[in-house]
Design a protein around this nucleic acid. Sequence first.
RNA 1: GGCCCCUUCGUCUAUCGGCUAGGACGCCAGGUUUUCAUCCUGGAAAGAGGGGUUCGAUUCCCCUAGGGGCUACCA
Length: 510
Amino acid sequence: MATRTRFAPSPTGPLHIGGLRTALFCFLHAKNNKGDFILRIEDTDQKRFVPGAEEYILESLSWCGITPDEGPSFGGSFGPYRQSERSALYTPYVEQLLMNGYAYYAFDTSDELTTWRNSMQKQGSASPKYNASTRAYLKNSLSLSAQEVEERIQRGDEYVVRFKTPVAGEVRFYDEIRGWIVFQCHELDDKVLMKSDGLPTYHLANVVDDHLMEITDVIRGEEWLPSTPLHVQLYEAFGWIMPKFAHLPLILKPDGKGKLSKRDGDRLGFPVFPIDWYNPVNSSELIAGGYKERGFEAPAVINFLALLGWNPGSNQEIFSLENLVENFSLKRVNKSGAKFDYQKACWFNSEYLKNYTRQEKRNAIIEIFPIAKNRNENELELVFNLASERIHFKHEIKDTIAYLFEKPKVLEGKGVNKAWMKEKVAHLEDCMQRIQDADTDFSAPALENIVKEYIEEKSISFGQILPSLRLSLTGTLKGPSIFDIMSFLGLPECLDRVKLAKKNYKINTI
RNA sequence: GGCCCCUUCGUCUAUCGGCUAGGACGCCAGGUUUUCAUCCUGGAAAGAGGGGUUCGAUUCCCCUAGGGGCUACCA
């Protein structure tokens, strides 16, 4: 049977980076097995529905290159892929459960249950369960007479349908990542399968849909582990073949304890969402920044996320999505939660920047400096390389080497103090004259030769002349090889800048 | 509290009973460089604790401790 995995987020807000990783692992597992990856929107909770969230999920996946084979807006023969559009479909299954004694009606209202739980807690039961031990004391079709049940339903009383957990025994299942896991039935809850609004809960809907959509591997976050025994029992109650289960470790806060949350991102200053998320009612209010807008390359984010919890078993760290597909295996997914390391994410990004193709490099430079389009391709590439080895993000290119395309507005004070001294400036002018007079192709090596000859002749060091040269040309004392910069600038521009610096800055006499 | 999961350098991790415990990020030092960065070389840095099993445990089992998740008519 062909592998089919699904990513089943609920549109209650922006997709969390942890959710993105779950989607990634689902995708990788499916593709590694030449199978299909399905996107299903779990919007059975009307109260928590957030407009725009589904679009956000779609955009995020699309940015990352995780393309569903089936899903809303992708089509497929197992649709619809939004649970809200499948609501009518669940009723027969609930009835089947009811008829076969695997489920029952319960009439307790939420308020009643809350007060009941409170009173139970006062009596020392830390987390009161609605199950075989308490059912008899609550209002349900197991405790009430058949007649009363009938009357309540006829009358239009609100009710839910609960799963009838066996009194005793155990539920065991094999987790592809963790191995065998066992739960005792008496520890389990009679979970609500169908809410009083007639919609199924996640538990029922995901089992029915996974079965109907022929999902073979359920890959989801570890937070679902405690409710898996219920799902297992549901499969058994329906007599359906069970999918394989794999529960992924959680992504934890970089410091302290607990799983990574939006607040951690705000607090520590890094994004926790793939792309920007704006207030659904006031679209001009940015609520949470994204990796994309922060300047991350999607493949870098994917690469980083993949290594958070999974490893190839080798020392390789850089993986394209295709590489990941080839190498991925659930067997090599870790059991323990992984703390989020933003610095490492930045490192991945810088690696991707350096590995840009020639064309990407040229495009990036032209995008940042439109004026650069007059330059030839080799020059554009050189400019990119000059900048990229001292930054982590593409958008940092602009500030690092803006002086290649426009005269520096000011020369930094620290530099002036250090390099704008009488003797040094004299050498600078002298040397510039030498360059001007020379018959040179103005290439970096040629320029370097001229300067080298000059300093040898004058018995001075590079340090006597290069800093002031750099300062007058770029306005700063740091940056790439000054000969590359000069070569790129060209003779007239170099002369112009030196002249300008001479005119605007008083010689430092100290 | 109960249930379930987890536990190797600060962080992400390798190790399928034989280890001088490897790699990466970060950090530190040195080298290259006019400078910053890159790059290269080197360094500090780990098996939670206690019991077993075994000729031999980081690796298998148990206990303790610690961490995490769940404990809704949310997913």
